[in-house]
Write a protein that binds this DNA or RNA. Structure first.
Lengths: 203, 203, 203, 203
DNA sequence: AATGAATGAGCCTTCATTCAT
DNA sequence: GATGAATGAAGGCTCATTCAT
C-alpha cells in the first residue's frame, strides 16, 4: 500500500527523528523537576523554570501536561527495565541471579527513589484517570516480563508471574517508601537482605 | 485530681460528642465523592455538591481539606482493620485462617475497591506531602499488626512482619488495580486462589 | 405630646439601661481583641473567641460589625478625652498646663497605643465609608474642644483651634507610630521633650 | 569585572525594561480603582474590572496584592516628592519658599486627595501589617528629607526635622480629610492661609 | 436572652492553555 | 521553531450574617 519512501517522506521522517530527539531532551530536563515535587504539585511553570525551558516550548512539543508526564515516566521506566534486564541476564546461576537482581533493585531504590515515587504516583492516577492507563499497562507488562525471564532463568515455572511481580513490587515499593519517609532510612544492607530473602522465596 | 464532672463540663462534653458525630456524618458523605474522583481531582466544592453539604460547613467542621481527607480515610481504614481482625480471630487453625483471611481480603477488594484506591492515593501523597505521613504511618502500623497476629496464630515467627505485610499489600493492591482497570476484572474465584496461594506462602 | 411616664415606659427604659450596660460590657471585651489586630483583620469570630463572648451575642446587641466597632472606639475615645480634660483642668498656669498635657498625652501613647492605632484606622475608613463619618466627627469635635480649652486656659486666642488640633494630632500620631513600628521605640523622655516643645509652640 | 554586555544580557535587560514599563502601566490603572475604594475594600477583581485588566495579568506582573499596592503607592508618592522638591528648589528666599511650598501642598490636596487618602490608608496598615512598613519608612524618609531641605533653605536649624514633618503632615492630612468629608470643603484660599501660617511657624 | 450551627458570597491565588510575534 | 504575555476557570479558604433552638 505504501509507496517506496519518497524524498518527502524521508525528510518528514528525519524531522520526526529530530523532533523525538528534542522531546527526549526536554523530558530529561522536566524529569528532574517532576521527581522533586510529584505530579500533582508540579506546574508546567515550575518545570519550565527549573529546566530553563520556555513555557511555550513545553506545549510546542507536548500536547498537554499529561502527555509530557507520561513521556517522562515511561522514558525513565524503560531505562529502568533495561537496567534490570542486564542485571539478570548477566547472572549464570540462580544464586548469582538473586544477588544481581537484589543488588540492582536496591541500588535503584537508593539512587532513583524520586522517580519511582513519581511512577507510583502515575500508576495511582491511572486508577482514576483512564488517560494514564495505557502507559501504566505498557510499563507493567515490561516489568512482568523481567520477572518472567528471571523465573525462567532460575528454572522456575512462570505460571503465576503476575502475582510474583505483585509480590516483588509490594516489597520494592515498601522499601522505597521507607527510603523516603523514614528517618533514618533503612541501610543498604538491610534492604539487600530483605530483597534477597524475598527473591529466594520464589526464584 | 479532677472534681466530679460539673454541669458545665458535662455540657461541653455532650457538645464535643455531637460535633464528633456530625464530623463522622460529613465524612461519610464526603467519602463517596472522594472515592469516585480521588484526592487530587476532588475539590471541596465537588464534595459539597455531591453530598448536599454547604461549602461553609465543610470548613466549619474541618480545619482544611487535608484534615477532612485524613479523617475520612482513617475512619474507613480503621473499620477495614477491624473487619480483618475479626476474620482472623475467628479462625481455629492455619487452614481456616488462610481461608478466612483470603475471603475477607477479596471481599473487600470487590466491595470497597474505590476506598482502597483512595487509600493508596493518600499513601502516595504522603511521600510528597508530610502532612499525610502521620496518618499513613498509623494505618500501616495497624495493618502490620493484623499481619503479625495472623502469623502468630499460624505458628509462624513474626520476625519479618513488615516484609510480609509488604508482600501481602503488593498482591492486594495489584488485585484491586485489576478490579478497577481490567475488563473484565478477574473473577472472585481467581482472586481467592491467588490470595490463598500467597497466604500459604508465608503463613 | 408625651404622656407622663407610664409603668410600661419605665420598664422599657430600665430595659434600655440594662441593655446599654451589657453593650458596654461586651464592647470592653471586644476592644481588647480589636486593638490587637485592627479593624480589617479582626473577624467577629476572633472577637468572640478572645472575649469569651458568643458569636450570636455580638449580633444580638449590635446590628453589625461596623456598629460594634464604632461603639468600642467611641467609648474609649470618650474616656481618653475625659482624661485629657482632667489633666489640663488641674493645671494652674501655662507651665503646669504644658507639663500636665504633655505628660498625659505621652502616657496614653505608651499605655494605649493599640487603641489609638485603631482610632486612626477608623478615622481613615471614614474617608472611604460614610458610615464612620458621624462618629469621627463627634470624636474630633471633642478633641478640638480639649485643645480649645487648653488654649484659653493658657491665655491664647482660639481662632485657629482646628489647625492647632491638626498640628498636635500630627505629632501625637507620629510618636504613636514610632512607638509601634520603631525598634527600639523612642523613650518616654524623648517623647515628653518633643511633645512639650510642640505645646510650647502654640500654648 | 563584567564582560561587555553580551547580546543575551542586552536582551534580558530590554525584557526587564519592558516588563517594568508594563508594571507602571498596570499600576497606573490599578491606582484609579484603589484611590476610589481604599485598600481594604478593593479586591483584585475590582481592580481588574475597573481597569480592563484580566485577573491573571495582575498576578502575572505582581506577586500578590500587597506588592501591587506597594508599587502603586510608592510610584505616586515618589512623584509627589519630586513635585514638592521642585517647588521648594525654585524658591529664592524664605517668603518665596513659604508661598511656593504652601501652594504646591494645597494644590496636591485638591488635585490628588484620593491618592493621599490611599497613602494614609497604607501608612495605617503598616501599623498592623509589617509588610507595609518598609515602603512607609522609605516614603516618609523622603518626605522628611523634603522638609529638611526646606528648613535649610530657609536658614533654620534642622534638628527636629522629624517633628516638623509630623506637624506639617498633621495639617496636610487634616486639610485633605476636610477636602473629602466636609460639605462644602474649605476653599483653596482658606487652605492656603492655613498652610502658610503653619509654614511661617517653623520655617 | 443567648447560642452556635449553617450559609454562601467573595477573596486571593494558581495554572494549563492559547496565541500573537 | 520558539517565546512568554495573557487569559479565565477553578481551587481552598474566610467571614459577616441568619436562624432554629
Amino acid at each position: 500500500m505504501n509507496q517506496l519512501p519518497s524524498k518527502l517522506q524521508l525528510r518528514a521522517e528525519r524531522k520526526g527523528k529530530k523532533r523525538d530527539e528534542k522531546k527526549r531532551q526536554i523530558a530529561e530536563s522536566a524529569l528532574s523537576a517532576l521527581k522533586e515535587l510529584g505530579y500533582a504539585s508540579t506546574s508546567l511553570r515550575d518545570i519550565a523554570a527549573k529546566s530553563d525551558l520556555s513555557l511555550g516550548m513545553l506545549h510546542y512539543y507536548f500536547e498537554d501536561k499529561t502527555e509530557l508526564i507520561i513521556f517522562c515516566v515511561s522514558m525513565y521506566k524503560r531505562e529502568f527495565v533495561r537496567g534490570m534486564s542486564e542485571a539478570i541476564d548477566g547472572a549464570q546461576n540462580r544464586d548469582q541471579m538473586i544477588a544481581a537482581f537484589a543488588e540492582a533493585l536496591v541500588r535503584s531504590i537508593i539512587d532513583d527513589k524520586a522517580i519511582h515515587r513519581l511512577w507510583y504516583d502515575i500508576r495511582n492516577q491511572a486508577m482514576f484517570d483512564t488517560a494514564f492507563q495505557p502507559i501504566v499497562e505498557e510499563v507493567e507488562s515490561m516489568l512482568i516480563d523481567v520477572v518472567r525471564r528471571a523465573l525462567r532463568a532460575a528454572g522456575q515455572p512462570d505460571r503465576d508471574v503476575e502475582i510474583q511481580y505483585a509480590l516483588l513490587d509490594g516489597v520494592f515499593r515498601f522499601l522505597m517508601q521507607k527510603q523516603i519517609t523514614s528517618d533514618p532510612p533503612p541501610s543498604r544492607q538491610e534492604q539487600l537482605n530483605a530483597m534477597r530473602a524475598v527473591l529466594q522465596g520464589f526464584l
